[in-house]
Nucleic acid binder design. Structure first.
Lengths: 130, 130
DNA sequence: TTTCAGCCTTGCCATGGTGTCAAGGTCAAG
DNA sequence: CTTGACCTTGACACCATGGCAAGGCTGAAA
């Protein structure tokens, strides 16, 4: 299977597939005589795993760790669960931080008449201390 | 004022101050004979503005636009308000996306016994389609 | 068989926000 | 004058992704 077909199947760009290869997240595939990468079913599965983990918000390092667990017959589900909960926690923190900014912006916008005049509490807030 | 003092005053690293200069967000300061950057009060104000806008989640491009509005006597507060609301909207979308991931992780973790056995619905979800 | 579109290759640049490191010059206090 | 803290430029790194360019390969149609 050439890289284009793999890309279409797993929904990861050819660009990113090569990138994952470069950073060692996926093994270097066989090459045809032409130099084209030649993938098998196992590569597709691995890339699907990576794409799913990425869509759940895991970082590259975490995905590498998850891949190790995946191929480890003696893994503990507790380890996987711990990673999932840690990631959930981190995502919650980031989301809350964004919501915090959003709330402040909405509060400021509420105080701004929003007409043709230049006076603006939003501007004042950004220009001032705090 | 040397860059270190400015950095301490506005809470932006010297590294980032130089970066903002490089991308044209702050004007090139005067130089002493030694080559050291020499800042004035106006530079400090501008950097405070940038830091505040950054803390509210605005992108570099948006901050540049806000700075233009800031120095524009004839600005409409409506323009500022529109930017704030657009940013709030975007922040809300990002936060929701993170929360979505978080919810799915928590749901999966809830289904995982989390003991020494390898069976794990979290793993199954990441390895499978969808 | 030739041709041609479309795929593949490598390699580089860019984004954004920040850290770090190196090698060298400068400043201020003792 | 010494010394340590600060400044300078430049470069490399992260992470995920896009794009571009120049050139090679494939497969199907003419």
């Amino acid at each position: 299977m050439k890289i284009g077909e793999v890309s279409a199947r797993v929904g990861v760009s050819a660009r990113m597939i090569r990138h994952y290869e470069e950073i060692g997240l996926v093994p270097k595939p066989l090459r045809r005589e032409s130099g084209y990468r030649d993938y098998g079913q196992a590569d597709v599965q691995r890339l699907i795993f990576i794409a799913n983990a990425r869509d759940l918000g895991f970082s590259i390092d975490e995905i590498a760790a998850l891949l190790d667990l995946w191929s480890n017959e003696h893994r503990s589900s507790a380890d996987v669960k711990a990673m999932a909960l840690a990631r959930a926690d981190e995502l919650g923190r980031k989301a809350e931080s964004l919501q915090q900014m959003r709330r402040e912006l909405l509060t400021l916008a509420d105080c701004c008449h929003g007409d043709d005049r230049p006076e603006c509490p939003i501007m004042d807030r950004i220009a001032g201390r705090g």
